[in-house]
C-alpha cells in the first residue's frame, strides 16, 4: 500500500483547475480505481465516465500525466513512487464537467460514413468469406471507440474550421473496415474526399501511438486509403478542373 498524490482536473464548461487529492492505492490498482476511491471518500460529485473496467468499452479515456490513456488500463505501479499524477479530461473535446467531455462530434461523423452495401449471397443463399479475407477488416473491428485517436489528431485538436470536412482516424478505419469487407459493394470515394477529408491527414501517426487496441490505424487504414485516392486521381480531369476554375465535379 502506498499513498499517491493525485492532481485531478475539476471544472465545468470553460472553467476549471487541478485539485489535489491524497489517495492510498492497493496492489494492482489502476488510475480508474483511484478516481473511484476519490469519488467514494472525498469528492462524491467527481465526474468521470466508465463501464467495463477491463479495456473493452472505451469509456474512461483521459489524459494521465498528459498522455491520452484508458484510466482502467493504466496501473498505478507504473508510476515512480512519490510522483504526482495528473488526470485531465481529453483535451480536444468540449468539457462538460471534470473528466467528462462532449464527444458528440464523433457520433455525428459516425452517421456520415456510407454503410455496408451487400453483395447478393451465393446461390444456396449463404455468404461465404475466407478467414484470410476477414483478417484485415477484423483488425479495424477491434476499435472500442475510446476516441483517443480523435483526441490526439492535430486536425481535430487545432483546426475547428476544418471539422465539418474531416472525420478523423476513428472513421478512416471504420471506412477502411467497410471497404475491406469481402461482401461490400459501396463506393466511399466521395465521402472520403468531402466529409472524411483524408487529404488533411499528414500521417504523423499520433493516432496509432495512442490506440489501446494497437490497431495499425495509419499503416493499415489511412495509408492504403490515401493510395487508393491517388489511384483514382486522373491528371486530365485535374487539368480540366484547374482551367474551369475549381468546379468540384468533372463534366
Amino acid at each position: 500500500m502506498q499513498t499517491f498524490t493525485m492532481q485531478v482536473f475539476r471544472g465545468q464548461g470553460r472553467q476549471g483547475d487541478f485539485r489535489e487529492y491524497k489517495v492510498i492505492a492497493d496492489e494492482g490498482m489502476v488510475v480508474l480505481d483511484v478516481i473511484h476511491r476519490i469519488q467514494a471518500t472525498q469528492a462524491p460529485d467527481l465526474a468521470c465516465r466508465w463501464n467495463c473496467k477491463a479495456g473493452k468499452c472505451g469509456s474512461c479515456s483521459a489524459e494521465v500525466n498528459g498522455k491520452p490513456r484508458l484510466m482502467c488500463m493504466t496501473r498505478m505501479d507504473t508510476f515512480p513512487p512519490g510522483e504526482t499524477i495528473s488526470v485531465a479530461p481529453i483535451r480536444t473535446f468540449p468539457l462538460i464537467r471534470d473528466l467528462v467531455t462532449d464527444v458528440s462530434y464523433n457520433y455525428v461523423k459516425a452517421k456520415q460514413v456510407p454503410p455496408l452495401r451487400l453483395k447478393p449471397p451465393d446461390p444456396d443463399g449463404k455468404y461465404r468469406m475466407m478467414q484470410e479475407d476477414v483478417d484485415r477488416p477484423q483488425e479495424f473491428h477491434k476499435c472500442i471507440e475510446c476516441f483517443l485517436c480523435q483526441d490526439v489528431c492535430h486536425v481535430i485538436r487545432d483546426h475547428e474550421e476544418l471539422k465539418p470536412a474531416f472525420s478523423g482516424p476513428r472513421f478512416f478505419i471504420k471506412a477502411a473496415g467497410l471497404d475491406m469487407h469481402p461482401l461490400d459493394t459501396q463506393d466511399r470515394t466521395e465521402w472520403i474526399r468531402s466529409q472524411g477529408g483524408i487529404g488533411l491527414c499528414n500521417i504523423t501517426k499520433c493516432c496509432t501511438e495512442v490506440c489501446p487496441e494497437h490497431i495499425h490505424i495509419t499503416d493499415n487504414g489511412i495509408i492504403p486509403m490515401k493510395e487508393r485516392m491517388a489511384d483514382n486521381f486522373d491528371p486530365v480531369v485535374w487539368l480540366l478542373r484547374k482551367f474551369r476554375g475549381g468546379r468540384k465535379e468533372p463534366a
Binding site: Q12, Q39, P44, D45, L46, A47, I96, R97, D98, V100
Partner: peptide, 14 residues
C-alpha cells in the same frame, strides 16, 4: 445526501 449540482454528478446518480 448529495453534494454539488445537477450537472454530471455521479454522487447524485448513485
Amino acid at each position: 445526501r448529495v453534494e454539488g449540482g445537477r450537472v454530471y454528478n455521479p454522487g447524485w446518480h448513485v
